Simulated assay, not measured.
Amino acid sequence: MKNFLYGYINPNSKPRFALGRVVATPGAIELMQRTETNPFALLGRHVTGDWGECDPEDAQTNEDALTHGSRVLSVYRLPLRAAGEKGDTQSQADLTGDRIWVITEADRSVSTLLLPEEY
């Protein structure tokens, strides 16, 4: 995992679970291309426990999933902002609401990048 995520994981963070095989839906690929988003940046955040825009209940469900072996879900708005970056005005992403999900299955055999409507 270190090799293909090198440079996308915060050096102070470590992967918290295995991603398994990584796949993406056509809609997710199109959105990442349109927003010039590198999928490894999304995977790096996901695997280190940055759940993106998950609500607090879903974030807690993810934390529990790491202990009990359940599915893990992250939600990111594209294009990504750097961690901690805040804008004074609404960005185009805020207006369009382009979101992508990253789901890692309970058995950690596969992680999928997909649009919410593709679920």
Rank of each mutant, 00 (worst) to 15 (best):
A83P: 08
R21K: 13
G49A: 08
D50Y: 12
P11R: 14
Y119N: 12
V47F: 04
D50S: 12
F4T: 04
E117A: 07
D50L: 14
G49S: 11
G49N: 10
G87H: 15
S13H: 15
G52H: 12
Y8C: 06
P56N: 11
Q92W: 05
H68W: 11
E36P: 00
S109D: 08
A83G: 04
L66F: 06
W51T: 08
G27A: 02
N10T: 04
D88G: 13
A18L: 06
T48L: 05
L73I: 09
L115T: 03
S70T: 07
S111R: 00
N3F: 09
S109C: 01
F4P: 06
S74W: 02
R16L: 15
R16H: 10
G69P: 03
K14R: 12
M1K: 00
G7S: 05
I9D: 08
L80N: 08
Q60K: 15
Y6F: 12
S111I: 01
S74L: 03
S91V: 01
S109F: 03
E105R: 09
L19D: 05
Q60L: 15
R99F: 13
P26H: 02
E57I: 09
K86R: 14
N62P: 10
A18N: 05
L31I: 07
A18T: 03
N10H: 14
L19S: 10
L43W: 04
D55H: 14
S70F: 11
P56A: 11
P116M: 05
Y8R: 02
L19R: 03
P15Q: 00
R21I: 04
L80P: 02
D58T: 10
A18W: 01
V75M: 05
P56F: 05
G20A: 01
K2L: 14
E63M: 06
S13M: 11
V23S: 07
L42E: 01
D94F: 10
Q92S: 11
G97N: 09
G7C: 06
I103V: 15
N12L: 13
L43G: 07
S109N: 05
T96E: 15
V22C: 01
E57K: 11
P116A: 04
P79F: 11
V102R: 00
Q90R: 14
G69A: 06
A59N: 08
I100S: 02
Y8K: 09
D64L: 07
T61V: 06
E36G: 06
N3R: 07
S70V: 01
T104E: 13
E30N: 03
D50H: 13
L113C: 05
G49L: 05
